[in-house]
Write a protein that binds this DNA or RNA. Sequence first.
DNA 1: GATAACATTTAGGGCAGCCTAAAAATATAT
DNA 2: ATATATTTTTAGGCTGCCCTAAATGTTATC
Lengths: 222, 222
Amino acid sequence: MQFSVTEENYLKAIYMLRENNDGGGVGTNELSQQLQNKAASVTDMLKRLAEKKLINYQKYKGVVLTSRGEKLAIKIIRKHRLWETFLVEKLSFKWDEVHEIAEQLEHIQSDELINRLENFIGNPRFDPHGDPIPDSKGQFNFLKSKPLSQFNQKGNYLLTGVSEHSKSFLQHLTSVGLKIGDSIKVDELNAFDNSYKVTINKKNIQFFSNKVASHILVVLKK
Amino acid sequence: MQFSVTEENYLKAIYMLRENNDGGGVGTNELSQQLQNKAASVTDMLKRLAEKKLINYQKYKGVVLTSRGEKLAIKIIRKHRLWETFLVEKLSFKWDEVHEIAEQLEHIQSDELINRLENFIGNPRFDPHGDPIPDSKGQFNFLKSKPLSQFNQKGNYLLTGVSEHSKSFLQHLTSVGLKIGDSIKVDELNAFDNSYKVTINKKNIQFFSNKVASHILVVLKK
DNA sequence: GATAACATTTAGGGCAGCCTAAAAATATAT
DNA sequence: ATATATTTTTAGGCTGCCCTAAATGTTATC
């Protein structure tokens, strides 16, 4: 069965919002914000998706993906991340230039294509933003990284990913000299505004606002 | 200005049908057949395309592309052929497997992407079916090849392309051992049914029906 | 030139996906 | 517990793109 680009985008949005929302269903308002449309339009579509057994939906109670819907959502995410990797690795795009193009490419229908593409780019396990790429069965190789802002301690960290993909944020990271795989040493925590003084790769001293720190995903190095 | 996938497909269809139709505009019926929909739907869309100045349209008189419409059509064809070449050259698809996927990829919007892709695959001038790939300015490098069926003489020919891209036709050519660049010597012309007895690459003897010969594009070797 | 055959357009309608405004349900505050 | 604020749904409507059936224009035939 084939689904429209719009339907696929709803599934992806539900999947991505659920990751934060611990457990509970995703709200209509939340979705309309993510999808840049109105709440009434979302309600409309949720009914259609429920009929197609892609989501479980009860009026006023929010929405969760069925296993069928989740499989589809993961497949779209897989395609998005593989295309992003292709664009950066093979066509030399920068990591802040690929998101919009991948938003289009993720809807191309062909399993054969995506599997060959994966092989062509060397079966990467993470995309250019450090996000894990699920395999063709939908399995993630996951690292339990967290936002830097959730560690309230000095120490040495490894940058494994980012949770914000906007051009302006990615360009900011590039401008402070930061990329996936870099080390970040937290030298000072400012309790007043929750900002950070850090050293990147042992020599580059920078300040991160809490907002920046909340979108930087790290693991603590022992 | 952005156009819908449907609008792009209409422009492409008008462009491709015009190539045969010597001079005159393309008919509504003809288009509905190409686009697999009904004539009434075509009339509907032609009005919209005319308002957007992509075509010149007069009721009952058929349709021609404006220069704006033609530029767009050529761009879509350029993208289609570059993606087909990518799929065959980089992802090892066979020439009969790429058409449907390229029908989707041709609608991806990004000039930067298509130019980088072109460079990545080595600036090819012909796609896997022998069709010329227009450059980023819309210029074709054209060879004046014609269907084999239009030469009414024995002689030596070079296969430069095909005018039918269906899986079944391409697989037929593959099965008789024929690919772009092969030589075809016409040994006999059968006046009764306009079929051909030929020798491929100097050793492989085959028979072509007129239908097959009409979709094989060749140049006469001197 | 009339008539038949064919091509094209109009009229009216359906569905997907969006909208606004108003109503209903739920959550929050007092 | 009631009043208020917020979220969500319903009702009704719009546009893009498709359809069928009927009307109209064009072309071919005698």
